[in-house]
């Protein structure tokens, strides 16, 4: 069994954030808070951490990603397009709202190497680990 060593991506506003997302998984299709609190997946891979934010209907220029004092903040604001101004909606289950979510980064993230891309409504942020962290997990101690 894999022991728990650390908890990467502990949200900056911990207690409260945890209540936002209780054990149940948020559907990609959203609940009522979908567009104000986007759902996030985090993967701990060998070379990097992978953060995915479900944020459909935006443009890559709508996002702002910042790192300050080890805190990663992802925010987005939909720029109004001409299309949005014509209403005529007879049913509206989603709309584009701005959002902001922060994450405490683990120490071994190379902050200057963070890359992000946006495709199919999902913002993907790649956070490479520094070499120390990539080193093999297991270690045999020689008996002298």
């Amino acid at each position: 069994m894999k022991p728990t060593i650390y908890r990467p991506f502990v949200p900056a506003f911990r207690g409260l954030m945890d209540e936002f997302f209780p054990k149940a998984m948020t559907s990609v299709f959203g609940g009522e808070d979908f567009f104000t609190t986007p759902a996030v997946n985090v993967k701990d891979l060998e070379q990097s951490f992978h953060l995915e934010v479900a944020a459909p209907g935006l443009n890559k220029d709508d996002f702002k990603i910042e790192v300050e004092n080890g805190i990663l903040t992802v925010s987005a604001e939909k720029r109004k397009s001409a299309e949005d101004q014509t209403d005529n909606y007879t049913r509206r289950e989603f709309h584009f709202a701005s959002f902001k979510r922060s994450f405490q980064l683990p120490e071994h993230v190379q902050e200057d190497q963070i890359k992000a891309s946006y495709a199919d409504g999902i913002l993907t942020i790649d956070l490479p680990k520094n070499e120390k962290a990539v080193a093999p997990k297991g270690r045999t101690i020689e008996i002298q």
Binding site: M25, F29, G31, E32, A39, N88, T90
Partner: peptide
Amino acid sequence: PANCRPVSQTNRPAMNIRK
């Protein structure tokens, strides 16, 4: 926390209708 609601899992995409 007062605004927090459990978000349920549903396989129904949110839908808008514009006429």
